[in-house]
Structure formats: structure tokens, C-alpha cells
């Protein structure tokens, strides 16, 4: 017993959700000379963009009337929709079926006399939840129109709402008018870029490429697939293939569209890879911009010195998502007993878990989550158990306590990379009364 390794704990500073959002001053822009957190360095080899969480007090889409508890509940509801959509898409891909294959027959394409694309057909039903939590500000077209786009590593296509609208959701600021942009360029139906779309069609009268993207949670967009210029305050990139959506459904956080960061060939990183920035990017996400800020970086400076790497895995049927091989989870320094197949992707021999910017709460297969939950509860016998909250099932009443000890939770990846999580990444407040929950969930919830 003397030689048994001591459990590893760390201190959680108890600070429940405020009764209302405090005013948070805009963080001084530590990126230096840039405006709003964008700069170009190293002779165009690095691009840095500030990201903002949709519920942050700094967000232009923030709802000042919503309480932090309401915002959290809404966030978890969005998360359920997104996780379900990813699950369905992945399972379909394992059978060689793409989610978009399910809707193609229900949509009819027609072209108006003036060449404007129109779409008719039954609309998809279901949850109309936003597909992402963080957004960037960028310029579209020439001259650039400032817009906000949701970033999403679970999507490949860049798109924004365009006039004329067959059906557009309400967005912050004016909808992009391609007629006012000198850099807007239609893509022909026979262009290679058009054929790279998962789902495309052709407007016969104008020989222009049409795209459609369905997100599986009820959200979708369809319109012209075009080339356009994107500007990031100091850096402008022309000829970016993107969707100009005339029929868009879903609550994309009032943003103008979606900035696809997925692994497919039409995502922004993939298109940049063909240009100048080496197909390397990174992001850092913060909840409330209190210490440090969220940012998205492309190019050589996107890789910090102390980075631990693990191989990216390929899913032969679905190249959108970024998979890694999670080989273990430790609680308090002890590896959990989890069967190796817990994190396998499908029956094709591939394995891995998805690293996603747009899903909030980590979902684990029940055979992995069960041991995690049990080990965490066993390591916290003195904390007053408080049942569950939303998709969380392990909560504690920490009211009246300033600091508590919780076991260290680490994720271990192939190649030795380890994410030793700060306490705030897995024990989170859910109300103003001091209730905290273990912020993991079973992937089977809501299945």
C-alpha cells in the first residue's frame, strides 16, 4: 500500500453562474497592431481572426434578457440536436449513405426567367437549431461587406445568405447582394469545383452550378455555388468557392452564414491549402473572453511550441469530421477500464472520436462514460450529490464552499498526447445556487 500511487486531485474554485451577465470589458487586443483581432504576419503566412461565442456578452447576437441558466439550457438543447445529427450522419456514412442523399429527391430545382435560382419542394422538418457556437467577422465581396459567420469544423461548405431570397432567416445586418460585388463569379455546371460538391445540380438556363447542404438537424441551405473574395481586415483572398444561398432554413445564430472548417476538399482550410497557408490551422475557444480570447489562426504561427500531437484518422465514407484515436481516460491518475472498441468509429476498421468545434459537451459511448461517471463519484464521496441537470447525471451542491477537491480527468490519445483538463472544463456551474455538474454525457442520451 505504501507504494500505491497517490490519486491526483486538483482544486475547483467554486464560482456559480452569476444571476445575470456581468458587463465584461472588451479584452485589450493582445494581437498587436490589428483591428478587432486580425493581423497578417510573416509575409502573408499567418492569418489570425478573433472568435466570439454566440452567448458571450461581447456577441452582437447576445440576448440581454436571457439569464445565464436559460442560455445554458438553450445551449444544451442545441447541443443535443447537433450531437444527434452527427451521430445519424456518421451511422449513415458507415453504410455508404450520405445524409444529403435523403433529401435530394424531395427538392426540385427550377430556374426563373431572370436566371435567379428558385427551389421548390417540401421543406425539411425537425429541429431548427443553429449549427455552431462561435463566429468570426469577415468581409465578403468587392468592396467587402462585413458579415458574421458561424465557424464549424463539422461542415465543409462556406456559404452565406444572398438576395434575392426565396426563404432566408433573420440575420444581423443586410443580406449579401451579389449584384453589388465586382468579384462575384458564377461557376459553370461543368466546373471541377461544382463536381466536388456532395450534392449539386445545374441551372440549365444559366449553366450555373447549384449547391445544397442539409445539416441533419433540420437546417439547410441551397443556392448558387460561386467564386467570391473574402477579406479578413488586411488580408483578402479572391476566388474562394462558396455557396450563395437563396433558400436557407435554421437558426445560425443570426449570422450571415457558415464558415466550413471541415476536412472535405471545399472547406476553407482545404482551399487555403491550395493557395498559400499550408493547410494548417488552429483555434482556441473560450467561453466568455475573460482571460485570453477565442481565435482562429491559419498558417505557420498556428502551431505553438508545446503542442502534443496525435494522428488524424480518416473515415473513408465521411471526410468532413476530424477523428483521433482516444486510447484511454484517467480519473485521479488511474486509467479507467474501457474496452478498446468503445471508441471505434464503425465496422470498417476505422477508429476514433470526433473533435468538434460546434458541439459543446463531450459525448462518450456508454461503455466509456459509465466507468468515468463511477470513478468520478467514487473519488468525490464528500461532495453533496445533487442528482442530474439536463443531459448531465452527476451534479453536486457546492453552495457555501469556496474551493473543493476534484479528481484530475485526462484524455489520452494515440502517440502519447494527453489532455489534462482544467477543472473548469469538466465541472461546470449550471445555476446561481451553486449546483455544479460533471460536464460529460453519454452518447446514448437522446438516441
Amino acid at each position: 500500500a505504501r507504494h500505491r500511487r497517490q490519486p491526483r486531485y486538483q482544486v475547483l474554485h467554486v464560482s456559480p453562474l452569476p444571476s445575470k451577465w456581468q458587463e465584461v470589458p472588451r479584452v485589450a487586443d493582445s494581437l498587436g497592431q490589428s483591428e478587432k483581432g486580425v493581423r497578417k504576419v510573416d509575409n502573408s503566412t499567418t492569418l489570425i481572426l478573433r472568435l466570439t461565442h454566440r452567448d458571450s456578452p461581447l456577441s452582437p447576437f447576445a440576448n440581454p434578457k436571457a439569464s445565464p441558466r436559460e442560455l445554458l439550457k438553450n445551449r444544451l438543447a442545441r447541443d443535443e440536436a447537433r450531437a444527434s445529427a452527427i451521430s445519424v450522419r456518421t451511422k449513415l456514412a458507415a453504410r455508404g449513405i450520405r445524409a444529403n442523399d435523403l433529401v435530394v429527391e424531395s427538392v426540385n430545382y427550377t430556374a426563373r426567367e431572370q436566371g435567379v435560382v428558385d427551389f421548390a419542394g417540401p421543406l425539411m422538418s425537425g429541429l431548427k437549431q443553429g449549427s455552431g457556437e462561435y463566429f468570426i467577422e469577415l468581409g465578403v465581396g468587392s468592396p467587402p461587406r462585413q458579415t458574421y459567420m458561424v465557424i464549424d469544423t463539422g461542415s465543409d461548405i462556406i456559404w452565406l445568405q444572398c438576395t434575392p431570397c426565396v426563404d432566408c432567416y433573420t440575420q444581423s445586418g443586410p443580406i449579401f447582394d451579389p449584384a453589388l460585388s465586382s468579384s462575384y463569379e458564377s461557376l459553370a455546371c461543368t466546373s471541377p469545383l461544382c463536381s466536388m460538391l456532395e450534392l449539386h445540380s445545374c441551372a440549365a438556363q444559366t449553366n450555373s452550378c447549384l449547391y445544397q447542404v442539409a445539416y441533419g438537424d433540420g437546417s439547410f441551405t441551397q443556392g448558387d455555388f460561386v467564386l467570391e473574395a473574402l477579406s479578413f481586415r488586411g488580408a483578402t483572398m479572391g476566388g474562394i468557392a462558396m455557396g450563395c444561398g437563396h433558400d436557407n432554413e435554421g437558426l445560425f445564430a443570426s449570422a450571415a452564414g457558415l464558415f466550413g472548417l471541415g476536412g472535405g476538399p471545399l472547406s476553407f482550410p482545404s482551399q487555403l491549402g491550395n493557395l498559400l497557408l499550408r493547410r494548417v490551422f488552429s483555434y482556441c475557444l473560450m467561453d466568455r473572453d475573460e482571460s485570453g480570447f477565442s481565435s482562429l489562426m491559419f498558417g505557420s504561427a498556428a502551431v505553438p511550441m508545446n503542442t502534443q500531437f496525435t494522428p488524424l484518422l480518416k473515415n473513408p465514407n465521411l471526410n468532413t469530421y476530424y477523428y483521433v484515436s482516444l486510447v484511454g481516460i484517467s480519473v485521479g491518475g488511474s486509467m479507467l477500464s474501457i474496452p478498446p472498441q468503445a471508441f471505434r468509429m464503425d465496422g470498417n476498421g476505422g477508429g476514433g472520436v470526433i473533435v468538434d468545434s460546434g458541439t459543446s459537451v463531450t459525448r462518450l459511448a456508454e461503455v466509456a462514460y459509465g466507468p468515468l461517471r463511477s470513478a468520478f463519484r467514487e473519488a468525490t464521496p464528500d461532495l453533496p450529490f445533487a442528482g442530474g441537470f439536463s443531459l448531465f447525471d452527476t451534479c453536486y451542491n457546492l453552495s457555501g464552499q469556496a474551493n473543493v477537491r476534484v479528481p484530475l480527468v485526462s484524455l489520452h490519445f494515440e502517440g502519447g498526447a494527453e489532455m489534462a483538463l482544467p477543472t473548469s472544463n469538466y465541472v461546470i456551474p449550471v445555476d446561481t445556487e451553486g449546483t455544479y455538474c460533471l460536464a460529460f454525457a453519454s452518447a446514448e442520451i437522446g438516441a
Binding site: 447541443d79 482550410p269 482556441c284 502551431v303 488524424l312 463531450t362 498526447a417 472544463n425 460536464a439
Partner: peptide
């Protein structure tokens, strides 16, 4: 399907290296 969500990613810089086909984590890089 298991997914590592953004609450667990907070405070880490998540690096996607499409050239070397690897993904990286760097703590305290926001």
C-alpha cells in the same frame, strides 16, 4: 459516436495539420 466537445477543449489550442495529418493540443494558448 463519441465527440470531444468545445467545453472540454477550452483553453487548449487545437491544431489541425492537414499536411502531416495530425491533430495537436497545446494547453494555455488562448
Amino acid at each position: 459516436v463519441s465527440i470531444i466537445g468545445n467545453i472540454q477543449q477550452q483553453g487548449f489550442r487545437i491544431v489541425f495539420d492537414g499536411v502531416s495529418s495530425r491533430l495537436g493540443f497545446a494547453a494555455n494558448q488562448c
